[in-house]
């Protein structure tokens, strides 16, 4: 069932500068949906429209099938976690968590019970009477989470909540958020520009650019089966290698409409595979040792490419031969959209 539906939604501040145009989007109940995209792609605006912090300029936005047009943010049964935590600095942790409950006129006994419970879950019990400035970054983020959770909302909205934390804490909280989502079973909508975060946490990813959805699906679908060059290059570190078709030799048997050829770095092989493959020569420019794997940057007659290899005894140096398995190539047309018809040819 769709929890949140956007139909033909658009957003502009001045008539001629749309941020989002005719956006159609459905967010599944109980999903962990990630709105992913580069800065300025409209993902935050979309989230803020769902929250009611931005007005919807055109189209309809429904939560639980109900049009949200005249519903105040406080009445949407949602909670939001902000990038900079947005916890009230003049209130103690307890007051921060309690503020929304008080405004919703929840009786005192009930409030106390809920706060205690949440304090236990988030590990904030002993900090309840502290002011935010006496807390660490991770603790502040937990206060923000606690403040959202205590309201028992049906939908959690999160706007890059982890980007202000250091790398180690970020990974830790990532796991905690996944667990939290599994425990609460409510709908999470999570905005980020970090594709690693998106891939690791989301059950569903919506990749956006310039106010449009470029592709959506499970992390696997998005990674394995990109719809366009943008998706191919946005997802994955390093991104998919993309060659211009016109630079490549005829012998590669590229479909006629194809303008770009893409392949993932891990699909570049240093040995001839069993399957039908293309062979090319390249010169290794750099070699990055990442531990279990090694990244190479290579110069080939058709452009630069990156290759990922497992860390094994043999080290590649200088000029090397490379093979690409034909079945793993992606072709894109002049509009940078995926050509899928060639699949049948083989």
């Amino acid at each position: 069932m769709k929890k949140i539906e956007l139909e033909q939604v658009s957003k502009f501040y001045e008539k001629d500068v749309p941020i989002i145009e005719d956006l159609d989007l459905g967010i599944e109940e109980g999903s962990f949906t990630i709105l992913l995209g580069p800065s300025g792609c409209g993902k935050s605006t979309t989230l803020r429209m769902i929250a009611g912090l931005e007005e919807v300029s055109g189209g309809t936005l429904k939560i639980d099938g109900r049009d949200m047009k005249n519903v105040q943010p406080g009445d949407r049964d949602i909670a939001m976690v902000f990038q900079n935590y947005a916890i009230y600095p003049t209130m103690t942790v307890r007051e921060n968590i309690e503020f929304g409950l008080k405004n919703a006129k929840i009786p005192k006994a009930e409030r106390r019970k809920r706060i205690e419970e949440i304090g236990g879950i988030t590990g904030l019990t002993e900090y309840m009477n502290r002011k935010p400035n006496a807390l660490s970054g991770g603790q502040r983020q937990r206060v923000a989470l606690a403040r959202a959770m205590v309201k028992n909302p049906q939908v959690f909205l999160m706007d890059e909540p982890l980007s202000n934390l250091d790398a180690k804490l970020r990974t830790q909280l990532r796991t905690e958020l996944i667990e939290l989502h599994q425990k609460l079973k409510s709908t999470f909508v999570y905005v980020t520009h970090d594709q690693v975060e998106a891939m690791s946490m989301g059950t569903h990813i919506v990749l956006m650019r310039d106010g449009k959805v470029m592709q959506q699906g499970t992390p696997e679908e998005i990674y394995d089966d990109p719809d366009n060059v943008f998706t191919a290059k946005f997802i994955g570190t390093p991104p998919m290698n993309v060659f211009r078709a016109e630079a490549c030799p005829k012998s590669w048997k590229i479909p006629e409409q194809a303008h770009y050829i893409g392949f993932r770095p891990e699909h570049v092989r240093f040995f001839r595979p069993e399957t039908e493959s293309i062979e090319l020569e390249g010169r290794i420019i750099t070699r990055e040792m990442l531990g279990a794997e090694i990244l190479y940057k290579l110069d080939t007659p058709y452009g630069f490419l990156q290759a990922r290899d497992y860390h094994t005894a043999d080290k590649h140096e200088g000029n090397v031969r490379l093979w690409l398995s034909r079945g793993e190539l992606c072709f894109f047309d002049s509009q940078e959209n995926r050509i899928r018809s060639h699949m049948e040819e083989y």
Binding site: Q83, Y88, F99, N103, A104
Partner: peptide, 10 residues
Amino acid sequence: ELIEAARLDK
């Protein structure tokens, strides 16, 4: 964001 958080807090 503080103001927005407050609005979400009714």
